[in-house]
């Protein structure tokens, strides 16, 4: 019987991992191509959630799921062109400070506009309910999140592996100078990557708004986890990040089962272990300019 409960936590952990994935993948992408550690990534997640709450009454949850990420992607376009683009070749500490500042501005702006108290938002009626798999119980809405995450991961993978766009991006990650020498400007690619990445973060925020407290700090909370996932998975590795998200979810579930006070700490412990054994992360590639 004990085994069934542990299995239940493992399964749940795998599903939870999907929540971190959409954010972690974007974070990894922006860093690998632009060399920017985007500390404002969580802010886009929070803005996505707040936009959903604001838009849903007029255009419905379905409409908000589409419109909110699009609006945030456009915001990403503006921020990338005006600010981020100046820092790709500079000292990484500068972009770190810039995005840290942006994150604080975003959090405080949300607090000033919507207040510090959580903004009420619930799962739409038609998506409520639970799914039973023998003893295992899962929320129907979370299965939808999982589905959306899977589609996004699949789509992103195809985009990177099977299209001309993806080939340039991958080449840019490995050797931007060579790409430039071949007469390809990485500028528009970087803009597109940022838009995709922050759009995905906003989509995650949109999907999570009904099941988590919508507060100004939600971005900062999720960002730490997303970072841990990227670090464990290894920079530049698509499937590394995917695996790490699942592993982090499972470790959390098992910690909650065995020793609840360490539910969050266990994840950081895992990161330390991985870094000790594999400093580039589980599947991290050797990227010359970051060594």
């Amino acid at each position: 019987m004990e085994f069934v409960f542990i299995l239940e936590q493992v399964l749940n952990g795998l599903l939870i991992g999907a929540n971190y994935l959409l954010i972690a993948l974007g974070l990894s992408l922006i860093f690998s191509l632009g060399g920017v550690v985007n500390l404002a990534h969580g802010a886009f997640y929070a803005i996505g959630a707040y936009l959903t709450v604001a838009l849903a009454p007029s255009i419905g949850f379905g409409g908000a799921v589409i419109l909110s990420p699009v609006l945030v992607a456009l915001l990403g376009l503006v921020i990338e062109r005006l600010l981020l683009s100046r820092f790709y070749r500079g000292d990484p500490i500068l972009s770190l400070l810039l995005t840290f500042g942006l994150a604080m501005v975003a959090e405080q702006s949300l607090r000033m506009i919507f207040g510090a108290a959580p903004v009420p938002f619930s799962i739409p009626l038609f998506l409520r309910g639970q799914v039973f798999l023998g003893e295992f119980i899962y929320s129907r809405y979370r299965l939808l999140i999982l589905l959306v995450a899977a589609v996004c991961v699949g789509g992103l993978w195809l985009l990177l592996k099977r299209t001309a766009f993806g080939r340039v991006v991958r080449a840019g990650v490995q050797n931007p100078d060579m790409v430039a020498a071949l007469g390809i400007s990485l500028k528009p690619y970087m803009t597109a990557v940022v838009m995709i990445a922050v759009g995905l973060a906003a989509l995650a925020g949109t999907m999570m708004a009904p099941v988590t407290g919508v507060t100004p700090t939600m971005g900062a909370e999720i960002l730490t986890f997303a970072f841990v996932v990227v670090v464990i998975g290894g920079l530049g590795s698509f499937w590394g990040v995917v695996c790490a998200a699942m592993i982090v979810g499972v470790v959390r579930g098992l910690a909650a089962y065995a020793f609840p006070p360490a539910t969050e700490a266990a994840v950081y412990l895992l990161m330390v272990l991985v870094l000790l054994l594999r400093p580039r992360g589980l599947f991290g590639e050797r990227i010359q300019r970051f060594e």
Partner: peptide, 19 residues
């Protein structure tokens, strides 16, 4: 169970409650 203050996802604990 003691729950960390920064925890936002309660699903592992909901499974434990059910058990």
């Amino acid at each position: 169970d003691l729950v960390p203050t920064e925890l936002t996802d309660f699903s592992p604990f909901l499974l434990k409650l059910r058990q």
